[in-house]
Design a protein around this nucleic acid. Sequence first.
RNA 1: GGCCGCGUAGUUCAAUGGAUAGAACAAGAGUUUCCUAAACUUUAGAUGCAAGUUCGAUUCUUGCCGUGGCUACCA
Length: 594
Amino acid sequence: MTAIESIIQSATAEALKTLFGADVPAKQITINDTRKEFDGDVTVVIFPLLRFTKKKPEESGELIGAYLKDNLDIVEGFNVVKGFLNIGLTKSYWHGVLQYIYDHEQFAFGPSGGQKIMVEYSSPNTNKPLHLGHLRNNILGYAVSGLLEANGHEVIKTNLINDRGIHICKSMIAWQKWGNGETPASTGMKGDHLVGKYYVEFDKQYKLQIIQLVAQGFTEAEAEKQAPLMMETQEMLRQWEAGNEEVMSLWRTMNQWVYDGFEETYKNLGVSFDQIYYESDTYLIGKEVVMEGLEKGIFFKKEDGSVWVDLTDRGLDEKILLRADGTSVYITQDIGTADKKYADHHMDRSIYVVGNEQDYHFKVLKEICLKLGRKHAEGIQHFSYGMVDLPSGKMKSREGTVVDADDLMAEMIETVKQRTEELGKIDGFTEAEAEELFKTIALGALKFFLLRIEPRKGMLFNPEESIDFHGYTGTFTQFNYARIRSIVRKFESKDNIPDIIPSVDWESLEMELVQMISRFPRMLADAGEQLNPAAVVDYAYNLAKHYSKYYAEVPILGIQDVEVKTFRVMLSAVVARTIKQAFAIVGINVPERM
RNA sequence: GGCCGCGUAGUUCAAUGGAUAGAACAAGAGUUUCCUAAACUUUAGAUGCAAGUUCGAUUCUUGCCGUGGCUACCA
């Protein structure tokens, strides 16, 4: 089905050619949806065309409008307001659109055969559990992946686990000293939380040592370096790099606890990965690449033996790639991982879902890969999103204001349960069905809340608002889906839904709904191009909102006329399908009853 | 200091350079013999400041003010 936009664009270009002898590329012609307060369905913006028509806006509009009416049988009429040519399309055109959409369930999705795109998201450290910030990352990463798939791209979802380095050694040291052999099994604690507990314990004890040392006359900086705990941790890191079996064994054990914990969280969240990379596997590749660059003279060595890259010609600074002692820094492993990812998949693009605090890091990474002449360099794209703040301010682990991901999900489910029971919404549900409903609503609320804001922007997470069920929420959208399903079930219990949508007169709300649905493909394409799941969520909500008004004002099953009733049910079914599809793309489920 | 973002109703968010800047929450006033009231209707309320480009600027440019991030041999 050709989009109405391009039909009008081409015809307008044709009109300009015929009437004024002007060659204007069809795509340059601006087409808008006609604003509600004017008559018409689509609008051609005439102002930019005046230099071709050499006439006043009104006159130009009239001439082009007349041409379109004469040459396009789907044009029923037109009017010109200032520089805007509003075009009304025939009823039979819209009826045909609706029938087409009804028949083609996948009408909004892009054709397959797009690019091969890797999306890396989540990428946690293994020293503590996931928190609210990770939640935004995971939900965005999953949604962006779905959005790209919906646009016909092949997506490889990956997770790069940051499983080595000083942070995990801190948890290990603390567990050795004060853990008393605790395990997830012995404590009943989720593995990631158990390891996180010892990370916190380390920090506590470490601070005490610093205070003591400062009291003994050391400066703060000296104390931080010389605290026995820190010395021990650094020694452990050296032993890890040397492959000390005892250390490796503890490392493997504790990391496994964390992986098991993460897996549970991912499962509850409903996100997944096609491949998991571990930094412990890739950081050595990074070192090799750096040495390669050094040999080729792309990088240089300083007197102390550290290796650097000079990016001043690209407007950036010099950046260290290997420490003087030969150990790698953060970007070292990223260079290696980028190589490995490409060797594994040969993708066209590689998207990194990482917070905007690392904007500079990814600029540097891309420049380095470019300097190295890597084929994958151009395809590196940092999907940068803003931080999540709380009403009380920034989340700070030191001040214990971090919102834990598992706790948050559990609390939201509990709130949904209470509210749902109060409203008597689960009469006739089995216990399993009820549990599933609570989860669908709670996670829908959470995901909608995190996705509704444009990724680039920082966001405020207000716990009370996030679990609000009214207004601009996932719950409202789900509710309208469930209402439609209820109607369709009732209709189907008595009548069959035909293949052909009855041709009846439309209410204005029905016309609005059809037009909204017809914009689904364009919305998906735009959102996919801009990597903006917020647009998808916004679309689904708006469709639900319009339907809600329709539902309140227009009787559906209550109407006598069978044709009208059937039409309304079929239109409703298409609305429901669209809401479900839009939500599914960004990872939100919908309930059949609620 | 330098670099990169962001400033829109009381609040949280929208608006490919297009018409009278949209929602939601909160506040006020209403709606249920009828398909799920987790609903609907309705009132009031906003582009930080100053220039510039343009037929037209919330959008693009510059300056100022405010705010956040980066500016680690942390990740």
